[in-house]
């Protein structure tokens, strides 16, 4: 935590001071990310574009190009095309899948590019120069700890999980670890595919099935929206907490407003792509060492620190 903060501080200083000096040799940073197909990726696209705009303006010596791809195979083609048409000094990539992208990224690395991997790791960690990711286990764990504390270690929970993937598994695992050894009991856990509609239906069914539900955790904010609507319709009052995760702005607004049922949020911020792009830019502009791994923490967002995670213009 302290180390992360130091790096961030260092980068910021470096960027601010070293800006206009390096106009001589223009460096190209390519950013390859998934196309916006749901809230979180939309946030990634928003923050990547914002970072590119800011850096291109602040550092004439650096050009950031953002390329979105709708699928893993399209992403492979996209980075191959990028590296074929120009010399890439750095590639910042949020891979669709680890398996398919590992070899193509290695080929670019072999040409001498600086590689920054975001969120999903490649199969061979030796390829990356810099790795920036959130902490999915902490998303689940910190939420669980909050509930344990506020509910005095006992109560009935229902959980909505997303699409069967590593991200989903890690969040659920973190959550289960967090409540281990307490009287909090998971009544039910089902997939709702990170989709508001499905979460709405699933929550209706949970409400029909269980007469007493003390808290709900949807491991993503899209699903939380459906959950809240279903609770509102049912008129049930016993549910003390309905929590999500990811840092969607609608939910952050609730936290800021001091909502009783959703008082906290755990971030898995799409803005991590921006962090990664800035750090990569620092490698060229700042003469500061940035090689290594940066794991963004998932601290509880509360009314006090919510502003830090609130991006009113972002679609997410």
């Amino acid at each position: 935590m302290l180390k992360n903060a130091l790096i961030a501080a260092g980068v910021t200083t470096a960027l601010l001071s070293a800006g206009p000096a390096l106009a001589a040799e223009k460096k190209t940073i390519a950013v390859s990310i998934p196309a916006a197909d749901h809230g979180w990726t939309a946030g990634v696209v928003y923050h990547a574009n914002a970072a590119a705009k800011e850096i291109n303006k602040a550092f004439p010596g650096i050009e950031v190009i953002v390329k979105t791809s709708p699928s893993a195979s399209a992403q492979v083609s996209a980075i191959e095309d990028l590296s074929a048409t120009r010399k890439l000094d750095a590639l910042v990539i949020l891979p669709h899948t680890s398996e398919e992208l590992t070899t193509p990224v290695k080929a670019i690395k072999d040409k001498g590019s600086f590689i920054t991997v975001v969120d999903r790791g490649l199969n061979d960690p030796k390829i990356q120069d810099l790795y920036v990711a959130g902490d999915n286990i902490a998303v689940g764990y910190n939420t669980a700890k909050f509930l344990v504390e506020k509910m005095g270690g006992k109560g009935n929970l229902v959980v909505l999980r997303g699409i069967p993937t590593v991200i989903d598994d890690e969040r659920i695992k973190g959550f289960q670890d967090g409540i281990a050894g307490t009287q909090l009991k998971i009544l039910d856990i089902q997939y709702a595919n990170w989709n508001s509609d499905e979460a709405f239906k699933l929550m209706q069914d949970y409400l029909a099935k269980y007469p007493q539900i003390d808290a709900v955790w949807a491991n993503d904010d899209d699903m939380l929206l459906g959950v809240l609507e279903a609770i509102k319709q049912s008129g049930r009052k016993e549910i003390k907490f309905a929590l999500g995760g990811n840092g969607m702005k609608e939910i952050i607004e609730k936290v800021k407003a001091g909502d009783a049922v959703t008082p906290v949020e755990t971030p898995y911020p799409p803005s991590m792509i921006k962090t990664a792009i800035y750090l990569t830019a620092a490698h060229f502009a700042g003469h500061a060492p940035v090689r290594g791994s940066l794991k963004l923490d998932a601290p509880l967002i509360t009314k006090e620190n919510a502003d830090e995670y609130y991006f009113p213009d972002s679609p997410f």
Binding site: D37, H38, G39, N195, S196, D197, F200, G226, E229
Partner: peptide
């Protein structure tokens, strides 16, 4: 129902 449209609506 949810008061919103998203790219995953109706998938």
């Amino acid at each position: 129902r949810l008061g919103a449209a998203t790219p995953t609506t109706g998938v």
